[in-house]
Nucleic acid binder design. Structure first.
Lengths: 197, 197
DNA sequence: TTTTTTAGTTGACATATACCACTGTTTTAG
DNA sequence: CTAAAACAGTGGTATATGTCAACTAAAAAA
C-alpha cells in the first residue's frame, strides 16, 4: 500500500518552500491506528482533523434505528474531520474509524491559520481545498436527489474505483444510502446487462 | 422584507474595521434581479459568487429526465455560488435563479483572498464560513441517507421556517428529494396526527 | 486448524414513494 | 378583469427499494 507523506503533499501541491512545510509538519503529532480503532467517537470533544498518510478510514453516523450511514471514506492523501468538534468546539456528531491499519497526522485548525498568516500561498491552497470539498458534497447531494441506486453505484465505481476494491460491499451500500441486499441486486442486474451484449 | 447590508454584515460578524470593509464593498458590483431572472445558467463561465442583500434565490440542477433538483435556497444574508465556475474556472453545472425580486453583491474569489491577506481576522472569518457550510452539507447528506420524507420535511420546517413560508411547496419537495404529490401526502398525514391529539 | 463472526446472495413479501390523471384553486400575465 | 399558467390536493396504480429469513462463503478470532 502506498503512503502519502504530508510533507511531500504540501511541497508539491501547495507550492510552499521546504523549510516552512517541515516546521508545520514537525509541530503535528503522528498517530497509528489498527483496523477497527476509532480516531474519534460521537460525543467526544477534539480540536483536530486528520490527514491520512497511510491506510483508510470512514466517517459515519448512527441513526435512531441503530443503522450506520457513511458520510465519507478517507484514503491516503485525504483529510477527514468532524467539523462540529474540530472547528466549532462541540461534541462530535460522527464516528471516525480506521478500516485498515492507518497512520495519520493530527492537525489543528490553529496550525492551519498560523500557516496561512505566514504564507499567502498556503491560504489560497487551503481555500481551494475547502471549495473543492464543498463541490464534492454538492455533487453527492445532487446524486442522492436525482439518481437511482444503480446510477449512484455506477458513479461510485467511476469516482472511487480504488476504494471499491478496499471496502466490503456493505460499506459501499451504506455510503450510497441503500441496503446491502439492494446493492447485491443492483450488481446482479448490471452483470446481466453486461453479459447480454 | 428585510435587507442585509453586506457592509453591516462584515462589520458585525467578521470583526473588521469599517474602513477596510467599505473598501472591499465599494469594489464589488451590486446587481438587481426580478423574480424569475437568472443569476447564472448552466454552462456559463463566471468568476464570482453572490451575496444576497435582499430577496431569495435558488440554486438547482436539471437531470437527464428534465427534472429540477434544488441544491440550495439563498435568502438575504447568505452566499450562493456555483463552485465549478467561481473557483475552478469551468462552465457552471447549476442554475441560480431569483425567486423573489433580489438584489445581490457580486464577489470575486480574488477579492476574498486579497482581503484575507490584508486582514487575518477576515481569513478566520472566511474559513469559519466555509467550514460551517461544509457542516450544513454533511448534515443534509446524512438526512438524505437516513431519514424518511416525513422526517426530512419536519427537519426542514425546523431549520428553515422562514423559507417554508416564502417558496411554493413544489420547491420544498424538490429540495427534499421527493415529488410534490408525496409532500402533499406527508403534510396531510402530519395534519392528521396533529389533529388526533 | 477449528470455531465464530461477518459478509454476500437470493427468495418472498411489505412499503414508501413515484407516476399518471383529474380537479379545483391560486397566482401571474395580458 | 379575464385568460392562462402554475400550484396544490387526491385517487388509483406502478415500481424501486426495504425487510425478514434462510443459506453459503469468506474472514477473523480462538
Amino acid at each position: 500500500m502506498n503512503r502519502f507523506s504530508f510533507t511531500e503533499y504540501l511541497t508539491s501541491n501547495a507550492g510552499l518552500d521546504a523549510s516552512l512545510v517541515s516546521s508545520l509538519v514537525s509541530s503535528c503529532q503522528t498517530k497509528q491506528y489498527k483496523s477497527g480503532d476509532y480516531l474519534l467517537r460521537e460525543g467526544e470533544r477534539s480540536l483536530h482533523s486528520f490527514f491520512i498518510e497511510k491506510g483508510l478510514a470512514k466517517m459515519y453516523g448512527i441513526d435512531s434505528r441503530g443503522k450506520e450511514h457513511i458520510l465519507q471514506f478517507a484514503p491516503e492523501g485525504w483529510f477527514v474531520a468532524d467539523r462540529e468538534s474540530a472547528y466549532f468546539q462541540k461534541p462530535a456528531t460522527c464516528f471516525i474509524q480506521a478500516i485498515e491499519d492507518t497512520s495519520v497526522l493530527l492537525i489543528d485548525e490553529a496550525h492551519i491559520l498560523e500557516m496561512a498568516r505566514a504564507n499567502p500561498g498556503f491560504l489560497e491552497f487551503n481555500n481551494k481545498l475547502l471549495h473543492n470539498h464543498i463541490r464534492h458534497l454538492n455533487n453527492r447531494i445532487y446524486q442522492l436527489l436525482s439518481a437511482t441506486a444503480e446510477e449512484r453505484y455506477l458513479s461510485f465505481i467511476k469516482t472511487y474505483p480504488d476504494i471499491l476494491l478496499r471496502v466490503p460491499q456493505i460499506m459501499v451500500a451504506s455510503y450510497l444510502g441503500i441496503t446491502p441486499e439492494s446493492l447485491s441486486r443492483v450488481r446482479k442486474d448490471l452483470a446481466g446487462k453486461h453479459a447480454a451484449r
